[in-house]
């Protein structure tokens, strides 16, 4: 992560860079920065509730300010600290994946210049790559649960298709008709379709039993 902020400085010709991440309660915390000088740390800390990273994190879109001496109304606490640290321009790019915003990439310049279109694209690209690296680190536990849910949902759906085949073969009907009978049986017994399907596939319930519910 520190490496990534250093790459920002190299590739984008900025003076300093930092990566701020949401801590789960929605507050932003500094994860990595190009400099650990106290004034820099303070600059990131003050953004836990106000500043370009906060705005960027909440809106999910990049935030830019060219002249921080003009921004004391927008960011009464952040702007003076940034100016005192010698910075004139600031940008923040969201770390996002499929609608979820995880944090922001914060770039500082000593000159009051607006980043060009190419630099903006590169900065967002760096933020995107950071998102993946980050998810890779934090998501192991959640991933296990989600993967189990995915497997369970998949297996349920597959069991229904297999049960359609079993019923169609045994009762000599089409697979659509087999599905109607399966559904009728599960509704009648107020059981989940996927459970009934699994019972059929695993031989706990015969197609003939399914067929006793008729109409």
């Amino acid at each position: 992560m520190v490496l990534l902020t250093e790459r920002c400085v190299e590739l984008l010709d900025v003076s300093a860079a930092g990566l701020l991440l949401s801590d789960g309660s929605g507050a932003l915390r500094l994860m990595a920065a190009t400099s650990e000088a106290t004034e820099m740390v303070e600059l990131f800390q003050v953004q836990s509730d106000e500043g370009p990273c906060c705005d960027c994190f909440r809106s999910g879109v990049p935030v830019n300010a060219v002249d921080l001496t003009d921004e004391s109304e927008r960011w009464p606490r952040f702007a003076p600290v940034a100016v005192a640290a010698g910075f004139h321009a600031v940008s923040a790019f969201p770390l996002r994946l499929r609608g979820q915003v995880l944090g922001a990439l914060n770039l500082f310049r000593t000159e009051p210049v607006m980043p060009g279109r190419a630099d903006m694209a590169t900065a967002q690209a760096l933020a995107d790559v950071a998102t993946i690296a980050l998810l890779q680190n934090r998501a192991i536990t959640v991933s296990h649960e989600l993967n189990e849910q995915l497997e369970h949902a998949l297996n349920s759906r597959i069991a229904i298709e297999q049960a359609k085949g079993v019923i169609a073969e045994r009762l000599t009907c089409g697979v659509d008709e087999a599905f109607s009978r399966l559904r009728r049986f599960s509704r009648n017994g107020q059981r989940r379709l996927s459970e009934v399907a699994r019972d059929v596939v695993e031989g706990r319930l015969t197609p003939e039993e399914i067929d006793t519910i008729r109409r």
Partner: peptide, 29 residues
Amino acid sequence: AAPGTLGPALEPLVGHRAVVHQASGMVSV
């Protein structure tokens, strides 16, 4: 996705192979 269901964008995982799963059921009988 809603609990117990498959994410809509993952639907092709079942849809694409529905016939193979049905045929497995028939052949098992």
